[in-house]
Design a protein around this nucleic acid. Structure first.
Lengths: 225, 225
DNA sequence: TTTTATATGCGTAAAGAATACGCAAGAAAG
DNA sequence: CTTTCTTGCGTATTCTTTACGCATATAAAA
């Protein structure tokens, strides 16, 4: 492919991840504060420029590790963003990913080479972000909502198993919807995302709840006609 | 964002479109033959490098026009591809789009500055393509299958209206599935993609079929829980 | 120990949606 | 007029979703 310098020079790729968690029925996204120009001091999603020696997902994972200390999480690709001026310095196209983790299980770095702060922000209270990250985050939330009903993305929140009441709380937090307790059970079991265990989990002084585990692999079924 | 030359230099973006059509019950994709290195003489999907002065979709449309003569079609973003060596010359990340058009209504250029041939290839008979275009095409077909049940992408195939038998043939071609004639009608009407007209269309000596038109805008409904 | 409160699991009736299939009607050909 | 083909409409049956009743397990209170 011949390269016309005038037209193709100075292009780059951003890899950006919306890292979600759910705490006490509230869906939150990890925001970090920029330490450099552009958008110095602004909150943004986790991400940065892709290197030439790494695949897209590897780049996203490296950025996550550098800026937050979080390692080895599973990513799902969301969308690509390429408006001409979405990044001030040079032409950057962004590839967006989503991830879901248990915020209790990771130790988020609050100060790194490129970031001066980090916090888990409820998705209803997201401020104006740098770049086009508000738009990216909106789409990411929709992608998350799609994924929890067709993939085992929630496994990362409950690696040791989960009870129906816990699951329901989580689904309600992410989908922003309430469900009937008894029908929710049927719906979820029908999705075929869970395996039975014969363990139970005692809560605070009530009937013990059965523990389920997310399947390792989910076969994706046609949702066609 | 500081740029480290060693790491970020020579990155570029491909915009690639899988242009589909349906002819006599067969789904086909437009393939073009390369006139330049790399992959000289190989069949590929329509696409090329993004310019700095155009948005992603505009770049995809320009490439389509340059290489095929086709203008002003609607695109839907599919996925991004970024394996390190997916393009030989330099590091290129590809953004993939899909489009559906009536091959009867366009005049595909068979010889341009960059292409030496073009043809509508049945999706069951696709040869080994250049770059990672076989992988891109596979995902694109799945995206097309999703889109025809939730968007009005088929409108471009039937700008002047369509009958149920015609529609059924098209759905069966794209989904690779047969439907009961009478239930298909109900299913499609339930999708709320069509508007009634009071016209009918006479076929070859049978009962005239009602003509429907695709809605201009489709409200996307939640497929959540 | 018995009772009470709370939350879980299971079951079932009613409502709604998807599927299988019968039948009449419009148009052209013989 | 009859035959043939195909479309549109309707309906019974099955399957799925929704609404909700009830027994049970646990801890705390009596």
């Amino acid at each position: 492919m011949e390269v016309n310098n005038k037209l193709y020079k100075n292009q780059g790729i951003h890899v950006i991840t919306s890292i979600f968690t759910v705490e006490q029925g509230v869906t939150k996204v990890l925001l970090i504060k920029r330490k450099n120009q552009p958008y110095l001091g602004k909150w943004v999603l986790t991400g940065g420029a892709l290197y030439n020696n790494e695949d897209l997902e590897d780049g996203a994972l490296r950025e996550i590790k550098e800026k937050t200390g979080i390692e080895k999480i599973e990513l799902i690709q969301s969308k690509a963003y390429g408006k001409i001026n979405r990044s001030p310095a040079m032409r950057m196209v962004a590839i967006s990913y989503i991830a879901l983790i248990d915020s209790q299980r990771v130790n988020v770095l609050r100060d790194t080479r490129n970031t001066s702060d980090a916090f888990w922000c409820p998705i209803d209270e997201v401020p104006a972000l740098g770049f086009d990250h508000n738009e990216i985050l909106e789409d990411a939330i929709k992608e998350l909502q799609k994924q929890i009903v067709k993939s085992n993305i929630l496994k990362s929140l409950f690696p040791n198993g989960v009870t129906m009441p816990e699951l329901q709380k989580t689904y309600e937090a992410i989908l922003g919807k309430k469900f009937d307790r008894r029908n929710f059970r049927k719906k979820i079991l029908n999705l075929n995302l869970l395996d039975d265990t014969n363990m139970t989990n005692k809560f605070e002084g009530n009937k013990p709840a059965k523990v389920y585990k997310f399947k390792k692999k989910i076969e994706d079924k046609d949702i066609f006609l």
